[in-house]
């Protein structure tokens, strides 16, 4: 059906081309102004990124002495090699925390979303409202009790403690997102599966999850981004500095700005390394993410 629609649209596009009318002069001027404004904002937005990118390929001396947006005169990878040395362990930690934290919260969220989206039970609205409220809960508000809890479980300064925190605190957001998708699974399908001899959880496993892969992917990527970029849990739930057991990349990167001065090229190279995985995910998954978010998932709340 989608193919048909695309075909229809391209037909309409051709028709529009043949019917092209020369625009009036003031419309042309307006268009130019629009584009100027757009370009201006784009430059403003991209300039810091550009600065970070070019600086990461400079030697430290050059990075300090030249304009931050000038192209490197001597192309150098020393920033990257230095940054990799410092970040290697923490990047691996971050990767583990991101993947398991996102998987955990998507798993929990998916189960909650299924129960809330497809089944009626007492107080289900109360549960849902509580979950939405939890989505807007500022983490700062619960930091101290969370820290005490994690310490009690013996998970302080342990990446699995951070994974646990992310799994649980990411769950409300995942539930909200996935409930939107699950409520689009037709009720007739659920009824049919019941008639075919399946219980509530068999239906979840065999019908709902396989038919909402897009929801799972979208929510997973969404969670990955926020966990990968997150700093607060990473900072509070783990020991920092010498002897740290669970340093995460976001925190380690910031500790580059040390007491002995700043290696700007290393810092910028580190930033690039940190930004890269999410950039890659978005480039490859962008298509799914857009269609996923369009189908009412994120706006479900």
């Amino acid at each position: 059906m989608q193919d048909n629609m695309i075909a229809e649209r391209s037909k309409a596009g051709q028709a529009a081309q043949t019917l092209k009318v020369k625009p009036k002069w003031h419309m042309t001027v307006l268009h130019i102004v629009y584009y100027l404004i757009l370009v201006l904002f784009l430059v403003f937005y991209m300039l810091p990124f550009w600065g970070a990118l070019v600086s990461s390929f400079k030697s430290n001396a050059e990075a300090i002495s030249t304009s931050p947006i000038a192209l490197p005169q001597n192309f150098s990878m020393e920033g990257y090699s230095g940054a990799m040395d410092l970040l290697a362990v923490s990047l691996l930690n971050s990767l583990v925390v991101t993947i398991f934290g996102a998987a955990g919260s998507v798993f929990l969220g998916s189960i909650c979303a299924y129960a809330l989206g497809k089944w009626r039970f007492k107080l289900n609205n109360v549960f849902f409202i509580a979950l939405i409220a939890a989505t807007y809960l500022p983490f700062q508000a619960i930091l101290i009790p969370l820290l005490k809890n994690i310490t009690n479980y013996g998970l302080y300064d342990n990446i699995w403690g951070i994974v646990l925190a992310h799994s649980i605190f990411g769950m409300p957001m995942c539930t909200t997102m996935m409930r939107g998708y699950y409520s689009e699974v037709p009720d007739a399908l659920i009824r049919q599966a019941m008639i075919d001899g399946n219980g509530m959880w068999q239906i979840y496993r065999k019908i709902v999850v396989p038919n909402t892969k897009l929801a799972t992917i979208t929510t997973f990527v969404f969670q990955c981004t926020s966990i990968w970029n997150e700093m607060l849990f990473a900072l509070v739930l783990a020991n920092q500095g010498e002897g740290a057991q669970a340093p995460l990349a976001t925190i380690v990167l910031n500790s580059f700005v040390g007491s002995t001065g700043v290696e700007i090229n290393q810092l910028m190279a580190g930033s690039m390394i940190l930004a890269l995985p999410m950039l890659i995910i978005y480039i490859f998954m962008g298509k799914y993410l857009i269609s996923g978010q369009m189908s009412g998932a994120v706006t479900a709340s």
Partner: peptide, 20 residues
């Protein structure tokens, strides 16, 4: 007795075929 234990077959107007 829940529907899955009644040994019934049902056809819905919407067909409700599993897309996966």
């Amino acid at each position: 007795v829940p529907p899955q234990e009644r040994n019934i077959a049902m056809v819905f107007q919407e067909y409700a075929l599993y897309p996966n």
